[in-house]
Write a protein that binds this DNA or RNA. Structure first.
Lengths: 146, 146
DNA sequence: ATTATTATTGAGATACATTCTCAATGGAGC
DNA sequence: GCTCCATTGAGAATGTATCTCAATAATAAT
């Protein structure tokens, strides 16, 4: 069991919930990669490894993972969203390729700072934010030129 | 007919399409306010003013309006999106209140600049972007305290 | 141990925004 | 008027996510 899954177990038990096999397998799946996974991908991977976790359980467990703070839900626009685990990952924003769908990360601490100022100015109390830039990734740019 | 609708007409005709009553009424509706409208709101307003434009036509015309550059489609996250006309509006980002649903705008040219740099660094060619901050607007913050 | 209580689950129903299909409509030009 | 093709509307289909509810599994009580 991965250390992150251990942490999740602690979170679940502290909340007075049960750390079931299904919850464990969803967590292990999410923690197994640094890629951005969407719920459907998690479900598919679980199916292929023999787990019988249902779609509903996958969504429910992903919500719990987000609540635990170990996983971040990112809104990729147009109703798509993905999950990634936060361990050892500072906050970052996303470059979404509209050609191949790939999602790259980028960091810009100053942008975060400027956002905070904008909120202060507007009397707004921020809870979360999402910044996506849509366009062509380096690979797809080349592919078109060629 | 509003001047923006005139421009839209020109766009439609230049494209070799027909400037129909339905397209005209959708455009007039969108240009009638500076608020952020979603497709369903446009449809409802049209229904109430006697127009018989269908949902499909509303969506199709909104796409044309975006293509013309006179209207911007903004992704508000969680699958919601809204439209606003761009005339006389510099680019801006959005503060989305998760309590009352209100959408405020804010401008921060430096953020735009930083985004461009981030793209350059990653070899990414940006086409569009969306920055939303979610949280409590000033009004809802007060309402909870009271 | 047996029973009662509660949490969790899966399958499918439902919701929702959006897009698609396709037959019917209706201008534009001959 | 007739032909042609763009446009339209009604409803079906899509995709993502949530909800319902009976069945199941775990925990607590006796």
């Amino acid at each position: 069991m991965r250390p992150e899954t251990q942490q999740f177990m602690k979170f679940i038990e502290t909340k007075g919930l049960l750390f079931t096999t299904e919850r464990k397998s969803v967590a292990e799946e999410v923690f197994s990669t640094h890629d951005h996974l969407d719920a459907e991908e998690v479900l598919k991977k679980l199916k292929s490894t023999g787990s019988k976790a249902s779609r509903a359980t996958v969504y429910r467990t992903l919500d719990l993972l987000v609540e635990s703070g170990l996983v971040e839900k990112i809104d990729l626009g147009e109703g798509r969203s993905a999950y990634e685990h936060t361990a050892g990952h500072p906050h970052h924003d996303h470059l979404v390729c509209t050609v191949c769908g790939e999602v790259q990360e980028f960091e810009e601490p100053l942008i975060e700072q400027l956002q905070e100022w904008a909120c202060e100015k507007a009397g707004f109390r921020a809870i979360g934010h999402s910044l996506n830039i849509y366009g062509w990734c380096a690979k797809c740019k080349l592919a078109v030129k060629a």
